[in-house]
């Protein structure tokens, strides 16, 4: 198969997933409100104190992103496991690697939208002034890439299992610990909360994303086969 088909297949899968999300509106009506709710809960838990919330913005922001990401990943596979879409994709002769890129791509797009909305959320609820836009955006993009690659791997693994609701976060969150640390640091540096070199954390996040994309390309085939 030529490389054109690879990209094409991936784009088809991603477009399919995004279309499903657009039409079902679950992401808009449940995941986003949940993420915003998390910000509000942090506000309650931390005494509604704006200075504390501003100081902790980067950490709270990324915790909210991670928890919402678990839901997005679960959604991405739940919508298809009932109809046997995974088998259909295999029957259609698509290579597992391109299915992986497609699924991860759709999750990535949703994460980016979520990150933007949560960015507005922290600006509104915590009163945080967003600065250092270059680093902020770049690190958010690579972190989303890492989360979606690792999430896609675990998503297909737990899809269709009865215990998936508890198993997915248990597997995914420890693995994403480096992303949480790196993204929090990078955002903290961009906002000027911590005096660290944010761009080196950007590099770290990029390496994480690359490793997990590579792992996904390699391991998605065997995982897809198993249903």
């Amino acid at each position: 198969m030529a490389d054109g088909t690879f990209v094409n297949d991936a784009a088809l899968v991603a477009a399919k997933d995004l279309r499903l999300e657009l039409r079902s509106r679950v992401a808009v009506s449940q995941v986003v409100p949940f993420a915003v709710l998390l910000l509000v809960i942090f506000g309650f838990a931390l005494d509604g104190d704006q200075t504390t919330l501003q100081r902790l913005t980067s950490g709270l922001y990324w915790v909210a992103v991670l928890f919402a990401a678990v839901l997005i990943v679960q959604r991405a596979f739940a919508v298809e496991s009932d109809d046997g879409v995974r088998d259909a994709l295999r029957l259609a002769g698509m290579r597992p690697a391109s299915v992986f890129v497609g699924k991860a791509g759709a999750i990535f797009v949703q994460l980016i939208v979520l990150e933007v909305l949560l960015g507005v959320g922290v600006a509104v609820f915590f009163g945080t002034t967003l600065t250092g836009w270059g680093l902020l955006i770049a690190s958010a993009v690579v972190a989303a890439a890492g989360i979606s690659a690792a999430g896609t791997l675990y998503g297909v693994l737990t899809a269709g299992l009865r215990v998936k609701e508890s198993l997915l976060p248990m597997l995914l969150l420890p693995v994403l610990a480096p992303v949480l640390i790196g993204a929090t640091r990078a955002m903290g540096a961009a906002l000027g909360d911590v005096a660290v070199d944010g761009w080196s954390w950007f590099n770290f996040l990029a390496i994480f994303a690359l490793i997990y994309v590579a792992l996904g390309l390699f391991a998605f085939g065997p995982l897809l086969e198993e249903s």
Partner: peptide, 15 residues
């Protein structure tokens, strides 16, 4: 595959 992902993650976490 789960074990493999975990092991790959360890150096990243440590670092």
């Amino acid at each position: 595959i789960v074990a493999l992902i975990a092991v790959v993650d360890i150096p990243l976490v440590h670092f």
